[in-house]
Design a protein around this nucleic acid. Structure first.
Length: 377
DNA sequence: CAGACGTGGGC
DNA sequence: TGCCCAAGTCT
């Protein structure tokens, strides 16, 4: 659609919805068009709270496509809350490596242990009980409550914010509009099938009421949508302008043993990539350009014949861009790991808790080491 | 409450 | 390339 003007008031002449959105109409659409997802119980079957909770945590700020393989592997490895609670933290971080937002994994593990220690292994069936669990906020508590326990809770995620802001043409930008959107949503939650209603709202947002080019022509609520009537659905929800993301620069040091093993350490438990593995690295400094190689080399974790691998590694985080020079040094197989670090054999790298940015660093360093050893450079 | 917190895909 | 987006939570 044409985006239309961005600062308009409701058109006096525009068509106006004849009635409010009907939850039953949405449920009817859901029964016919619902997505089949691995964490979803078949129609009419009760949902497993553990699986619902696990999927909701994984899906926070993460696409269904990205979650699917992680969910399958994770569930195979930790089939129930007891197996997760009794697992070591490293195993959980390893299973989460690559999914991002690693505090979710820490909180997931803490949550499983809380459920086992304080709730006898059963998830609390109340909103307050769920909300008290680590990593469970207003959205997740409502989603698990509605889907797994039939609580008439409003699970308001990004999909629902988009759907509701269009239906009612909410002019206030996010995040300020959240309380209003939540109240508007809560008023629609049906006493029967609240879990299906929650999932229907998400499917509607994901399949029909999409951020760009919404398929208003096949929407079960098209007759009740103020934005559709005004022809500017795509401009909702209104959002506060974003800030520019700064760049940071630094060095990573990939120590490679003659037998191919790589030197890794584990990051501190809190903060960026908390609890995840990495090759040792220097500080990441904000700026406009990469510091001189000689300056970066000052931060080498130990003395070795460090050489910069051509190209480096770029990565984009939510709040900054990162550019790393990857220094590589090949050392003897009997070289002892410095304090706080360990040698990880090539075959074991896949089972380490390397976040993707650090996987890129290791791959880049190993590629250069391989070429250097075969004398191809 | 604004900022921290990953990653990959679409356009 | 760059910007936006995706089932948020915690501090």
């Amino acid at each position: 659609m044409a985006a239309g003007q961005t600062s308009q008031e409701p058109d006096r002449g525009a068509a106006v919805p004849e009635a409010g959105p009907d939850p039953a109409a949405l449920l009817g659409w859901y029964d016919a068009h619902r997505r089949t997802l691995p964490w979803r119980a078949p129609p009419g079957a009760p949902a497993d709270p553990y699986r619902v909770w696990l999927s909701e945590i994984m899906l926070q700020q993460t696409t269904v496509t990205a979650v699917q393989p992680f969910y399958a592997r994770f569930l195979a490895r930790f089939p129930d809350v007891n197996s997760l609670a009794s697992a070591p933290a490293e195993a959980v971080m390893q299973a989460w490596a690559g999914l991002g937002y690693y505090s979710r994994a820490r909180n997931l593990h803490a949550c499983a242990r809380t459920v086992v220690a304080e709730h006898g292994g059963a998830f609390p069936a109340s909103l307050d009980g769920l909300l008290a669990l680590p990593g469970v906020g207003p959205y997740t508590a409502a989603a698990v409550g509605a889907i797994a326990f039939d609580l008439p809770a409003a699970a308001v995620d990004g999909n629902v914010e988009r759907v509701i802001s269009r239906i009612y043409r909410v002019e206030e930008p996010l995040p300020g509009a959240k309380p209003r959107i939540r109240a508007l949503t809560q008023a629609l939650v049906p006493a029967l099938r609240p879990g299906d209603f929650a999932q229907a709202m998400m499917d509607l947002g994901a399949m029909i009421c999409t951020p760009r080019r919404p398929a208003c022509g096949v929407c079960p609520w098209m007759g009740s949508c103020a934005a559709r009537a005004a022809g500017d659905a795509e401009t909702f929800p209104r959002k506060a302008p974003k800030k520019a993301v700064p760049s940071r620069f630094g060095a990573a040091f990939v120590g490679v043993r003659a037998d191919g093993a790589v030197l890794l350490r584990t990051r501190p438990p809190e903060g960026l990539l908390g609890g995840m593995d990495e090759p040792p690295g220097g500080a990441w400094r904000e700026g406009d350009a990469m510091p001189a190689l000689a300056d970066l080399l000052q931060e080498a974790p130990f003395a070795a014949p460090w050489r910069p691998a051509p190209g480096g590694v770029r990565h984009v985080f939510t709040h900054f861009r990162l550019e790393l020079v990857v220094f590589v040094a090949i050392v003897a197989t009997d070289y002892a790991a410095p304090a706080g670090m360990r040698w990880v054999r090539r075959a074991d790298l896949a089972r380490s808790a390397l976040p993707n940015v650090m996987r890129k660093v290791v791959a880049h360093g190993l590629e250069f080491a391989g070429r250097a050893r075969s004398g191809v450079e």
